[in-house]
């Protein structure tokens, strides 16, 4: 077998399989085409396939009941894991913001656990992002193709995440320019900064909601959802590592540098615990959600 190209289904078989309902093809077409590749259909098998297509059109709800449940669980797991990762990214970005001062850099050098926790949280976020791409990119490409062919009204939803990101970045740039060129009162500057942070969460929520709509709306191949679920399990593990690092960072800062911990380096110069503790809580909640979603998704996989 080695060195030989895998057998391919003939034109007749491929053409007849296209007569089946799309939802049925998403679930079974790969298997049937594999069967037809090993055994090209004669007239009798082609007629049997045609009857099967008619049966599938008449009984699609019954035939896909089990598969539909599984796919719905995989979709939910993928979406929750994505949402948890996005929430974690914002949380880690918050940590980067609050410990950007030199005093924190020096504390991280003096206390390796502190520096290690900070670096681990950031790297776990990056690794999780790479895994999100591994699981999500094939879904995005296939979804885009599906929407282009069968549901063009869904196409604007693909533009929501980049548009939301652009609005947030554009607002940040605008506020930066205004802050530099115009002497804004302190309260206005702080309000604008808080608004910009709130906008980040809104943009993230709108983006995840758009992805959720797409996941529900488009017919996506089960094998891609299975790949996303496996990647989602690894994302959940990375999110958990990041959340544990956030907790470690907060505890170590409190233990090793109490003056920094209780200082006024929180958001808009509030006491740091008012920012650090909510960040830790959000990160932990994201990890719990991601782990639960990944567990449910993996349990829904065939053979699990």
């Amino acid at each position: 077998m080695s060195g030989q190209a895998p057998p391919r289904p003939g034109r007749l078989g491929t053409a007849v399989v296209k007569l089946y309902p799309r939802a049925w093809r998403d679930r079974y077409a790969d298997e049937v085409l594999d069967l037809l590749a090993h055994r090209p259909p004669g007239p009798r098998a082609a007629a049997d396939l045609l009857l099967g297509a008619l049966d599938a059109h008449l009984n699609i709800t019954e035939l896909l009941r089990g598969a539909a449940t599984m796919l719905a669980q995989l979709r939910r797991a993928a979406l929750t894991t994505l949402g948890a990762w996005v929430a974690l990214c914002l949380t880690v970005a918050g940590l980067i913001k609050v410990n950007e001062d030199l005093a924190y850099r020096q504390a991280e050098i003096a206390h390796p656990l502190l520096g290690g926790a900070d670096a681990t949280a950031q790297w776990a976020c990056v690794v999780a992002g790479a895994l999100v791409l591994v699981g999500g990119l094939p879904l995005a490409v296939t979804g885009l193709r599906e929407a282009w062919r069968h549901d063009r009204a869904a196409l604007p939803l693909f533009a929501v995440p980049p548009a939301a990101g652009a609005v947030w970045l554009g607002t940040g740039l605008l506020l930066g320019l205004l802050g530099r060129d115009a002497a804004l009162p302190q309260w206005l500057g702080r309000a604008a900064f808080c608004g910009w942070i709130a906008l980040a969460w809104v943009a993230a929520a709108v983006s995840v909601a758009a992805v959720g709509r797409l996941l529900r709306r488009l017919e996506l191949a089960a094998r891609l959802l299975r790949l996303a679920t496996v990647a989602g399990g690894l994302v959940a593990a990375a999110v958990t590592v990041a959340a544990l690092s956030l907790i470690t960072y907060a505890v170590e800062l409190h233990t090793a540098e109490p003056a920094l911990f209780s200082g006024g380096d929180g958001i808009i110069a509030t006491p740091l615990p008012f920012t650090l503790i909510p960040l830790t809580v959000i990160g932990t909640a994201a990890a719990v959600l991601a782990d639960r979603a990944a567990w449910r998704g993996i349990r829904a996989l065939p053979g699990a």
Binding site: E31, G52, E62, L63, L64, A67
Partner: peptide, 16 residues
């Protein structure tokens, strides 16, 4: 036939 095979497989799967 392939149509019969997968019609039956789908029904058996739905019934657990």
């Amino acid at each position: 036939g392939p149509g019969t095979l997968y019609g039956a497989l789908a029904r058996l799967e739905v019934r657990g």
